[in-house]
Each structure stands twice: as structure tokens, then as C-alpha cells.
Amino acid sequence: MVAIEDIRARARTLLESGEVRAVLGYQRGSAGTLAEPAFLTEPQQAASLVWDPTCIHNLALYLVNEKKRQRTQRSNDKRPLAVVAKGCDSRALVVLLQENHIDRSEVVILGVSCEGGGVIDPRKLTRALAGRAATTVAMDGADAIRVGTASGETTLPASELLADRCLECARAYPELYDTLYGDKAEGRSYSPRFAALNTVAEKPLDERRAYWNAHFERCIRCYACRAVCPMCYCDECVVDSTEFVVTPNTSADEKANRIRWIQRSPDASESAMYHLVRAMHLAGRCIDCAECERVCPVNIPVRLLNNVLEREALEAFEYVPGTDPGLPSLISSFRDGDPNDFVR
């Protein structure tokens, strides 16, 4: 069992001692049931920390954002940030470490194990409750979730509410942590890895094309998927331009030098290009927190585009992202025995 009191106590000591600049965790939501990211700087705020299956967000993102902010504000507070990290979040931290984006000294990791559970998919919850609003959501053993509503409590099978990625998760505990809360539970998983991906991948080619074309057609290019992704930390995305960051001194000529790999118009083909480029750029880096899919306002299964490359990385190259910060990344390494049959 993850004892939330322990996490709160740790957060309080860290803040009291001034060891950390702030604690990134989850607090009760101000709207709706879902917990929300909390940025705590005072010891007494530690009491507001929560841990339940609505702690969906990947907090690694806020670490990245905070780093960006510190850089622009030229802050010289060099103290680390403490971060509450689930298994997937911790893998994101590993990739960030692997890419030198953060230094291990910049972060204190409060690892929490999902202990056979996971986080819910809000869409599944809404569907299961048929419109009623949930007030509380808690794991009830490993296989069930207790949901409180205005009209009382119901217990639903976890497999109906957990997010797809949690159902498929093979390692529901932090890879890397300073303190660990809860037990590392091995051998769980409700569905096989890549189950959601396979249902699409197994469709015939024409159907697959129609499926994705319809999705790309719908994309509004709000870039929410990119904004929520802890790996999309570049100052300037190739999708916007790749020539340079615009400054007040940027001349028109220089602006003309930008590569327009992708047009801004929400044309299906441009959107497809955007999603494919993003998937390629996340190959070997995406740790499947599925935040991109969650935030998509038009329900594009963005996660699957990353999943397909994750599966290939595993099956063809035995590469699992987010396991070892010392490893060269998927595409900056190779083995002599890599698949070669596909080449003529």
C-alpha cells in the first residue's frame, strides 16, 4: 500500500529543510474528480498531496517546463525539484537524463508504485457512470475500483476503468527513485502489451488507411499533444520551422530561409505529416504515458502512432525506452544483426 502520509511527510521535510525548491505532486482537483498537478513551495502545503487512480498527469512535463522557465528568468536557485513519479513518469525522467536534458542532481524522485493498479481513463469513467459525476475514485484491491458518486458508492472492475496504457503496462513501478512508496508488483497486466495497437494494426491495409485518414482529417492542429509531451522539450519544433529562433532582429530574408516541412494549415496531409514526424522523433524516446492521447480534444489515438514504433523497437531491436540513462538511444545506435531482409 502506498501510504500518502509518508509522501506528505517526506515532502514536508524536504521543503522545511530547504533541500528542494519545490515539490511537484498531485492535489485534489478544483473542478471534477481528477487530481491535478500541484507545485508546492511551503511545508504546510504538503498536507494537500493526494495519491489515487486519478493522478493521471505525467509530472515530468512540469519539471521540463520549470527548467525552461528558470532558464528564461535566469534564476540562480540551483536547488533540485522533488517530483512524485509513477512508473511511466519515472521512465520519462530516465529518457530526460539519457538525453542530458536534466541532471540527476536537479531532481529528487519520490517514486510511487501503481501496485497492480494504475490510473483511470476519464473517458471510460464517464462512460461507466453514464453521465453521473464521480466524487471519489480509489483502488479496491488489485482488480476493482471504488467510485463514489452523489448517489452512493459503486465498485467496478479495474479493467473497465483503467487507461489502456495501464492495462498493458508491464512495469507498473518506478525505474529510478530516491524514495519508493508502495511495493514493486511484478507480473501484473490486464491485457497483453500493445493490445490496443494490435486491434488497429491487424486491420487490413485499406481499412487502416481509412481509419487514419479520418483521424488526420479531424486533427485541428492545436498541438496539445506536443505541449503535454515531456519529450517535446525543444525550444523550436521542426514542425514550426527549423532555421532559427525568431528574434526582433530577424530579417525578412532570414525568415524566408525557414524550412516549411509542414504547412500550418490543418489539411489532412499536413496533419498526417505532423503526426508522423512527431512519431519518428519520439521513436525510442516515448515512454507511453499516453498523455498525448488523453489531451487530444478530437479523440485521435495519438498513442498508437508511438506504440507502433515502440513495438518495433522492442521486437526488432530489443530496445525498451526509459530503462537506463547510460544507454545510447534507439536511433543513435545499431547492431550488426539488425533486420536486413527488408532491404533489397
Binding site: 538525453e99 542530458n100 536534458h101 522539450y233 525543444c234 525550444d235 523550436e236 527549423t242 532559427f244 529562433v245 545510447p328 538511444s329 536511433i331 543513435s332
Partner: peptide, 8 residues
């Protein structure tokens, strides 16, 4: 301006 020092 674009390099993040990822070392790839």
C-alpha cells in the same frame, strides 16, 4: 539555438 545537447 536548436541543440539541446542530447548527444545522439
Amino acid at each position: 539555438s536548436h541543440c539541446t545537447g542530447c548527444e545522439m
